[in-house]
């Protein structure tokens, strides 16, 4: 999965369009970043990448880039 594909899938989870997001987007500024979005993001990462991302990694992420970094480190590990 490329970064562009990750942003596209993440935008779908949030019900928005990819051009409104980038890796620096602060998750706390997004109205849609709530408990249901957490679940959907966990599912999206598991489904598309087979990555077991910890709930803490998701909760502690400040930006979308932090989530991607956590996913990449899992894939490298």
């Amino acid at each position: 999965m490329t970064r562009a594909e990750f942003i596209r899938d993440f935008a779908e989870v949030l019900g928005t369009t990819p051009d409104l997001l980038d890796l620096g987007t602060e998750l706390g500024t997004l109205d849609a970043w709530d408990s249901v979005a957490y679940l959907s993001t966990l599912v999206m990462i598991d489904d598309k990448l087979g990555v077991n991302l910890s709930p803490d990694a998701l909760r502690n992420a400040i930006t979308m880039g932090d989530i991607l970094k956590a996913v990449e480190s899992k894939l490298e590990g």
């Binding site: 709530d34 408990s35 679940l39 998701l58 909760r59």
Partner: peptide, 24 residues
């Protein structure tokens, strides 16, 4: 932080952690 109210006498569920546990 999400606006839910509870005391220690009530059930608490960390929904994200339980969901994560289940899907694995």
């Amino acid at each position: 932080p999400e606006g839910n109210i509870r005391s220690q006498n009530d059930m608490y569920m960390n929904g994200l952690a339980i969901f994560h546990f289940a899907i694995w």
